[in-house]
Design a protein around this nucleic acid. Structure first.
Length: 998
DNA sequence: GAGCACTGC
């Protein structure tokens, strides 16, 4: 990092930088005893064209590089208080002195004594920093030694292959030569079969999207059907064989152990299986398709019906279709017939710009690419770069996506276009799944994944180009990446940066990246007519229902997509619609109602994608999930009430809340665009044109300004970015949020009093969880309960979606939930749930019986597996504490001592220890009725009231034990002790009672 | 006695 400070300043001064100059200047700083000496040395060395500039340069560099050393020197001579000002947290009154520092501040002591303790403090710091760096070095070696990327869960085959190869080499080659020949023949046949099958599959796929099925002759159709059948049978055969242990139609013989028999279902229990299944389904949906195939078939017949209420709409404008109307499209479709993938690629809107684009990339280090979806930029640009030689010297082209499914599907598409197997030259990397190899040159990944890669490769030296795709979505990770890539681009002039974004933001990105040029690529979209209401609508659920029926009876066939804020509104709308439909009976055509939101079980989600039967209409009631995450085909009408639910975090209270807010203009346009994907569409906005113009914000507030940043700040710190408050954010988060994050990290011991990362902090940064949780994970080593804490962490990660509570069986679900309750609190209940599920053999049936969401549990299991791996990485042994609940709760307290509350005198309510806010135990908590005197909470949420979600009971003395630097005795005194009503706070007395085994 | 928008590591 020091090098980068030097190179930055140097670059400004002399316009170029190289390693040796940086080293040299660094050396000068170290050798100079004061600023003047340094100034002289610099001007001697660099020449004195502009003395003023040199002076300024020297001053800046000196103050940045020597601040810490000077601070250290000063500290040993003066009072402690002064040094504390170097912490880059300005609300330092929250802190009490760190333990080792606070004791010797006794004023009666002599100066030399305190100096001595200062020295030991300083020694401690140096030792810690040394250990931290050694730890980092060990991690680096581990990464290096690991045969890169071959051994991953997903790529089991290649891993096995590699292992086998090594084994073979160890054995005597001569001996096994004949065997090897047979094996090689077998493998050849296997591979040939694979190739043939892949070819067949590609044929069918081509056939299907290049030709309109109607235009095929009977014999052609028959051939296609035949091909499909062959492929299906071949795949089925393979699948049956792959399930080696499965014995179909097998009767267990007498006396024989039945354990051999394995249900086919068991294959689903493999790690990631559920997630994969879901993602595969999504992948199917995400495939490239050519639209308007059946536009002509659509009946134009209109129904007439008198409605009870009608909303008056006015058409205001039409969003242009990028010079691309249906006629053109039909012409183009004719052209695409019988053409190969290669020729299809040439028809993409981006193709004519290929040479120009490559030229621009060569010329400029940073380029903003402005292009609508459908221009082919995501799939084509990396290929163009590859062809243009940007992958020379085995350098990679990295392309980030905000979503896992997108990264996978795009990579698969590109591999197909290049005619290679996914995972070789083209690969993708997402959490839980790394489908890359040493040969990978084009790497698609989620933005968060690139962020983690920074930890092991801070200069991204293995990449020659980084493409940040969908930048306009402004996800938390993309926003952090902006600052980081901008930073490394300065000292890596060979690194190219491409930021791709939709129209609205391009200028802003350009300004951020020092006025980088903007390259425009047209998209491919159909026009969309926008309608507004004449007057504002009070009740948007009611307005939606009316509009749906209005469209249904007056407009030609075509599916409707409705955007609603949440599950509740979706269910409400569904009920009203069903009721009205029943009343209207056969007077209207069939209307299929399909809800979709992320917490909906997978099989019900799938119904959304089923094709609409002829002469009926589908209406999809969706949350924001349909805005970007998934695309539903054949939507012609969009209804947009103009609201969504948004999470916001209040750094002053530490409270999160989820509230319904008006959407932004960008979001409204994105929603409207969902109707123009297959043909010209219509969007009905349930607000007035005036409201659109004057009441909606241009853009949604970026995520980075709305969330708690603990983990982000820790990651940045571990990347060596010390001055977080002045980090170059595109849109800086609120000052308070950053300060709160820094305070917490300091209190947790991740940062020392100079704001430097400690050894503990370095280890904490390895975990993809909140810093309080990573501290808990590390503290679990001390209390020998790492197994349980890892489980808790994984379960809290999937949080609210563990328990399933259908409306009609609410009472049963509640009883089932209460059966999992554990004395001591909710975290222990989560361990209980997980362990019971594990004992059931990770059974789906068990989940059904206990009103637990199977999908969430599978996810918890994946997270748990990853955390286990990371525990090993940071050198913590996995141990179980069996029934020792105290140990678990103490471990949690070491991470979450910040989150404690004490029962207050007003019955039932609590006051947070720091901050004195009034909060309540969430009614779903196992401690809701018990009301212990002291509780620790996982999070604060503001819903109808201020609630603590996920609480455990603690002993106030533990706080002194685990966080003596943070709590003073006085704060924990139980002044309320005697005044407490009898029933309340009773459990504190028998804290040491025997707990049943988990 | 409440209520879970959506992602991502």
């Amino acid at each position: 990092m020091r090098a980068s400070i030097v190179s930055d300043s140097l670059h400004q001064l002399i316009g170029f930088v190289d390693k040796s100059t940086v080293k040299f200047v660094n050396h000068l700083v170290d050798k100079s005893s004061d600023i003047d000496e340094f100034k002289t040395k610099v001007s001697n060395a660099l020449g004195t064209d502009d003395q003023q500039k040199v002076d300024q340069f020297a001053h800046e560099l000196w103050s940045q590089l020597r601040a810490q050393t000077t601070a250290t020197k000063r500290r040993s001579k003066t009072k402690v208080r002064e040094s504390r000002q170097t912490i880059d947290v300005n609300k330092s009154d929250v802190f009490v002195e760190p333990k080792s520092v606070s004791k010797p501040t006794d004023t009666s002591r002599k100066g030399d004594e305190s100096e001595e303790s200062m020295d030991s403090d300083e020694e401690e710091r140096t030792r810690d920093l040394k250990e931290r760096d050694e730890f980092s070095e060990r991690l680096r070696l581990k990464d290096k030694n690991k045969t890169r990327n071959i051994a991953t869960n997903s790529d089991k085959k290649s891993y096995e292959e590699a292992a086998k190869r090594l084994k073979l080499e160890a054995e005597d080659r001569q001996k096994i030569m004949p065997k090897l020949r047979v094996e090689s023949r077998r493998q050849y046949l296997e591979k040939r079969k694979e190739d043939k099958l892949a070819l067949l599959e590609a044929d069918i796929a081509d056939e299907e999207y290049l030709f309109n099925e109607e235009n095929l002759t009977e014999s052609e159709k028959a051939k296609l059907e035949y091909q499909k059948k062959v492929l299906h049978l071949a795949r089925e055969h393979d699948r049956a064989r792959d399930l080696e242990n499965v014995q179909r139609y097998h009767m267990p013989s007498e006396g024989k152990n039945n354990d051999e028999y394995i249900e086919v279902d068991d294959t689903e229990r493999a790690p990631n299986a559920e997630q994969k299944k879901w993602e595969e389904e999504r992948l199917g949906i995400a495939r490239l398709r050519f639209g308007a195939k059946d536009a002509n078939k659509k009946s134009r017949k209109e129904y007439e019906l008198v409605m009870d209420a009608e909303i008056e709409f006015v058409q205001s404008l039409t969003i242009g279709g990028d010079n691309f109307d249906e006629e053109d499209h039909e012409k183009e479709e004719k052209k695409t017939k019988k053409q190969t993938i290669d020729e299809t690629r040439r028809l993409l809107p981006i193709y004519p710009f290929k040479e120009e684009l490559i030229e621009a990339i060569r010329e400029h280090q940073v380029l903003i690419i402005e292009g609508e979806t459908g221009s082919g930029k995501t799939t084509q640009i990396p290929q163009y770069l590859h062809e243009a030689g940007f992958c020379a010297d085995n350098k990679k082209v990295g392309c980030t996506q905000p979503r896992r499914v997108a990264a996978m599907s795009v990579a698969a598409r590109v591999a197909e276009e290049m005619g290679i197997k996914l995972g070789n030259e083209v690969g993708y990397s997402i959490r839980f799944e790394d489908c890359t190899s040493e040969r990978t040159l084009l790497k698609y990944m989620t933005d968060g994944m690139l962020l983690r890669e920074f930890l092991s490769e801070p200069d991204l030296s293995s990449y020659s180009v980084i493409i940040v795709d969908e930048a306009h979505e402004r996800t938390l990770h993309t926003d952090v990446l902006f600052g980081l890539v901008k930073d490394i681009a300065r000292f890596r002039p060979d690194l190219k940066l491409l930021i791709s974004s939709a129209t609205l933001d391009a200028q802003k990105f350009s300004e951020f990246f020092d006025d980088a040029p903007v390259f425009r690529i047209p998209g491919r979209r159909f026009p969309v007519d926008i309608y507004y209401t004449k007057a504002p609508e009070a009740d948007y659920v009611e307005a939606c229902c009316v509009t749906i029926l209005q469209i249904h009876v007056t407009q030609p066939l075509g599916d409707i997509l409705v955007f609603l804020p949440g599950q509740e509104e979706i269910e409400q709308t569904q009920e009203i619609l069903q009721e009205r439909q029943r009343k209207l009976g056969t007077r209207i055509r069939e209307l299929l109602i399909r809800p979709i939101y992320s917490n909906l079980p997978t099989d019900m989600q799938a119904q959304v994608f089923e094709p609409t039967p002829p002469n009926s209409r589908k209406v999809v009631l969706a949350t924001n999930i349909a805005e970007t995450s998934l695309t539903i085909d054949n939507i012609l009408f969009v209804i947009d009430p103009g609201y969504c639910k948004q999470n916001s975090f209040n750094p002053r209270t530490g409270m999160e809340s989820l509230i319904v807010v008006p959407i932004s203009k960008a979001s409204a346009n994105q929603r409207a665009g969902r109707s123009g994907r297959v043909a010209a569409g219509k969007c009905f906005r349930l607000f007035t044109a005036w409201a659109y113009q004057h009441e909606l914000e241009d853009n949604t507030i970026p995520e980075i300004q709305r969330v708690h940043l603990g983990n982000v700040v820790l990651t940045l710190k571990s990347l060596g970015i010390n001055d977080i408050l002045h980090f170059d954010f595109l849109d800086p988060p609120p000052h308070e949020t950053l300060v709160l994050a820094l305070e917490q990290l300091y209190a947790l011991g991740a940062l020392n009093h100079l704001g430097e990362l400690t050894r503990l902090g370095r280890r904490m940064a390895e975990f993809p969880v909140d810093p309080m949780m990573s501290k808990t994970l590390i503290a679990s080593e001390k209390y020998s309960c790492s197994e349980e804490v890892v489980t808790i962490s994984a379960m809290l990660n999937v949080n609210a979606s563990v328990f399933y509570r259908p409306k009609d069986k609410a009472i049963h679900a509640d009883t089932a939930r209460k059966n999992f309750f554990q004395l001591g609190g909710d975290h222990l209940m989560l361990v209980n749930v997980y362990n019971q599920w594990a004992e059931s053999g990770y059974s789906r049936q068990w989940c059904l019986e206990n009103f637990i969401q199977y999908r969430s549990m599978c996810r918890a299991r994946d997270v748990r597996d990853q955390l286990e791996g990371l525990m090993e990485r940071v050198e913590i042994e996995l141990k179980s504490c069996d029934s020792d609940h105290i140990a678990i709760r103490k471990a949690i307290t070491s991470g979450y001592f910040y989150h404690t509350a004490r029962l207050s005198r007003t019955a039932g309510s609590y006051k947070t220890v720091k901050g004195q806010q009034t909060v309540l135990i969430h009614p779903n908590s196992s401690l809701f009725e018990e009301k212990p005197r002291w509780v620790l909470y996982h999070e604060l949420v503001l819903t109808t009231k201020e609630y603590m979600r996920q609480t455990i009971e603690i002993d106030s003395q533990w706080l002194l034990e685990v966080a003596p630097h943070y709590y003073k005795d006085k704060e924990l005194e139980d002044s309320t002790h005697k005044k407490m009503p009898k029933q309340l706070g009773k459990s504190n007395n028998d804290l040491n009672r025997v707990y049943p085994k988990l």
